[in-house]
Nucleic acid binder design. Structure first.
Length: 482
RNA sequence: GGGCCGUUAGCUCAGUAGGUAGAGCAGUACACUUUUAAUGUACGGGUCGACGGUUCGAUCCCGUCACGGCCUACCA
């Protein structure tokens, strides 16, 4: 079937490869000293200058005694000109045996064609690596979404906008690190392999550590270890790395994802707010091209200040001034009238929260800090000074998605123990008692924040699928693999 | 996990109210010394996702499966 015809391409390329070998070329050759990457050669273009360059052959325009072709490296594309009389006969004949996709090294002089294209007229060339399989079509690129994710290398070669988006992701992560380091934060690494998966409520990936003969979990969040570091005297730390959650795949969920968590001692939410506002506007301006992302009604405006509103006010705004005075039955009826299906086990708080998650959050398109969540929902946060039923937190929502929750961290070990015990219920093994012990030694008051980096990049880049910002997103394994 | 949709040449896509399929790019051959989606002429290339069923006959209809997409559910 498809392998058969694909083999015809491969067979032909093997024939070409052997012919080149017979002429003394090494098909999977060697290092090649280049004057610079193609972008540098373009930048430092001087008429007549002798340079060497290397890249992958991407298009060939053969006119008999004269060939124009493009080569590409990780930085740019560049046109080369192969003129029959400019190199020896055998080298010219050998060049015609090349296939699109081959890596070559070339030497020659720069010039400008009559159409104004900077070009390298080659006097020598060498084969650096043979490509045995054809690349996707040059004009339409690779469209098949499955192939794009499974063979991302082809996607990167043939779809320049994909490469550009990943370059932006790389730049955003680099800028995030320098932004935080410039403000005195230290980047740390804490365990991804944990004996207890704490810091969030998600199903973990389970594995087994043979040496200790014990179950281990891939972390679902770094939070509890970062707080141990607060106890240990690291008062400004962050970790920017992967967490893992054994939950469903969707347009906005990948089982491994990149999270940034930041903790600063002796500060509170206002400190976290300054950081997130500064960081996001910095990234928008310096990496993604400006403070307004997208167009028309979808545009997101990152100009400060951002809206700040309490959870309670949002609920009232959506469900009516009297919501919090309603009986449970009346509230449930009103929620169901809005199209929500309610779990009979829920109480008033969960019904209200369902209203927030299903009816309100997705409508918060512009950057919005939602504050003062019910305390039961956020067991690791400290309560507000004026009202112990709500916690001193914000969730930054952008484009209808939760991008960054921040807490005044709970540092009262007695309250923390009670809340974790309550949450774990009968499943007491789930409580990380080592963490509670650390708190008892005294954790400074602190603000903390978690930022889903993949989602932040989606938001800033204006893409709506998480797999478009992850190089190798998770897919089901193909059983027919060779 | 549930619902709906998709899978045709290496790539991008047409198509057949059931009679084993076409185009462009790519490939092969020839021509061509300034092209850039080079051009011109000719040629080759397909188990129409897999397996069953219905039928004289299935890429097309039906069923199962695989993979993917969208929606939905789980992820404080």
């Amino acid at each position: 079937m498809s392998e058969l015809t694909q083999n015809e391409y491969r067979e032909q390329r093997l024939v070409n490869m052997r012919a080149l070998e017979d002429m003394g070329y090494k098909p999977f050759g060697h290092a090649f000293k280049r004057s610079g990457r193609l972008a540098e050669i373009r930048e430092e273009f001087v008429e007549e200058k002798e340079v060497t360059a290397a890249g992958r052959l991407t298009t060939v325009r053969d006119m008999g005694k004269s060939i124009f072709a493009d080569i590409r490296d990780g930085s740019d594309r560049f046109q080369i000109y192969v003129q029959k009389k400019a190199l020896d006969e055998e080298a010219f004949a050998a060049f015609k045996l090349l296939d699109v996709g081959d890596h070559i090294g070339v030497a020659g002089a720069l010039f400008t064609t009559r159409t104004g294209e900077p070009t390298l007229k080659i006097s020598k060339w060498d084969l650096l690596s043979k490509s045995l399989l054809p690349l996707p079509e040059k004009w339409h690129g690779l469209k098949d979404v499955e192939a794009r994710y499974r063979q991302r290398y082809l996607d990167l070669i043939s779809n320049p906008d994909v490469r550009e988006l990943f370059d932006k992701r790389i730049a955003a992560i680099k800028e995030t690190r320098s932004f935080l380091e410039a403000r005195g934060f230290s980047e740390v690494e804490t365990p991804m392999l944990q004996s207890q998966a704490g810091g969030a409520a998600a199903r973990p990936f389970v594995t087994h550590y043979s040496a200790l003969d014990q179950e281990m979990y891939m972390r679902i969040a770094p939070e509890l270890y970062l707080k141990r570091l607060l106890v240990g005297g690291f008062d400004k730390v962050f970790e920017l790395n992967r967490s893992f959650r054994n939950e469903g795949l969707s347009r906005t969920h990948n089982p491994e994802f990149t999270m940034l968590e930041i903790y600063e001692a002796y500060t509170d939410l206002s400190g976290m707010k300054d950081i997130i506002e500064g960081l996001i506007t910095h990234l928008a301006e310096n990496v993604f091209g400006g403070l307004v992302v997208g167009e028309g009604d979808d545009a997101i405006d990152f100009n400060l200040p951002w809206r700040e509103v309490t959870y309670r006010d949002l609920i009232i705004e959506r469900m009516g001034d009297d919501w919090y005075d309603l009986s449970f039955e009346d509230a449930s009826a009103r929620a169901e009238k809005e199209g929500l299906s309610l779990d009979p086990a829920w109480g008033m708080m969960m019904v209200t929260h369902e209203v927030y998650e299903k009816l309100i959050e997705k409508t918060l398109h512009q950057p919005t800090f939602v504050t003062r969540f019910p305390a039961e929902l956020v067991p690791l946060a400290g309560t507000c000074d004026d009202d112990a039923s709500v916690v001193d937190v914000f969730e930054l929502v952008i484009g209808g998605k939760e991008v960054a929750p921040a807490y005044k961290e709970l540092n009262n070990p007695l309250v923390q123990r009670e809340r974790l015990d309550n949450q774990a219920g009968e499943d007491a093994e789930k409580v990380d008692y080592d963490f509670l012990t650390a708190l008892e030694h005294g954790m400074p008051p602190a603000g903390g924040m978690g930022i889903g980096i993949d989602r932040l990049i989606m938001t800033l880049a204006g893409v709506d699928a998480i797999r478009d910002v992850i190089l190798f997103p998770q897919l089901r394994q193909k059983t027919s693999a060779e």
